[in-house]
Amino acid sequence: MAVSSIPDARNGTAAATRGNARDRALFVNFFRRELTTRYLGSVTGLLWALLHPLALLGVYHFVFTSVFRTTGFAGQSFLAFVAVALWPWLAAQEALQRGTVSLANYAGMIRKVAFPHEIVVYASVSATLALQFAGYLAVLVVLRVFGETIHFEGLIVAIPLWVVLAIAVTGAALLLSALQVFVRDVEHVLMPVLMIFMYLTPILYPLTLVPEGLRPWVAANPFGWLVGRLRDALLEGRVSFEWMDGVAAVVALALLFAGRAVFRRLSPHFEDFV
């Protein structure tokens, strides 16, 4: 079976170059559109992206320091301790949720125009992550201004970790979005699963508060590992890479390629089901 791509497929390399340029242009178009249509429509605009995590942070602060009076944040304030971990989690969660349903928003195009469908998922995930990362930096600055100990040199480690997170989230979003086209339940199952996963991850509490017997299980959570690394870097100022960072990068890449393989298997059939 030989299907030529559009435009010209007679000259392989020329077509590939032209195809790549087109795909990049499409990505930029979708990415920009994700940012503008998502926030232009709402009254609070771009502010909402920052407001949501801030409100959550405020509520958690109230519940955990005023109601439960939790202590033992390794000498850190609760706000800084949670903020450093909460943002990447919310970023991953939102990117997964939006990425999973992103293809439905482009249903009309998928049915009538020839283009690589995965660009839709890339644009959705990267727009969400870019926005949340900007919010993350802003919050770090605000925390520092209010006298919290934030080690900005820790970004040397934190930024590559965000990249690893982005790769893993993209892989998972590719997988879930492809499945969502055929089985609409994915979207509904994802929500509670993410909720449960969040409370099983040491985001709102330190690992040291987990009972001794359960600790290895909680520690095995890859997102828990990521959160720990971010805290080490940004709150403790430990700027050094470990061999685990490399393992994480490899695992994230494996997830990306697996997700993409599934996506590409299923995408020729999207037109009929989306």
Partner: peptide
């Protein structure tokens, strides 16, 4: 022909912009 879907069988060749 527009390339929106792939055929299950057979081959399609397009030499030009559709």
């Amino acid at each position: 022909i527009a390339g929106v879907i792939k055929p299950t069988r057979g081959s399609v060749e397009v030499h030009g912009r559709v």
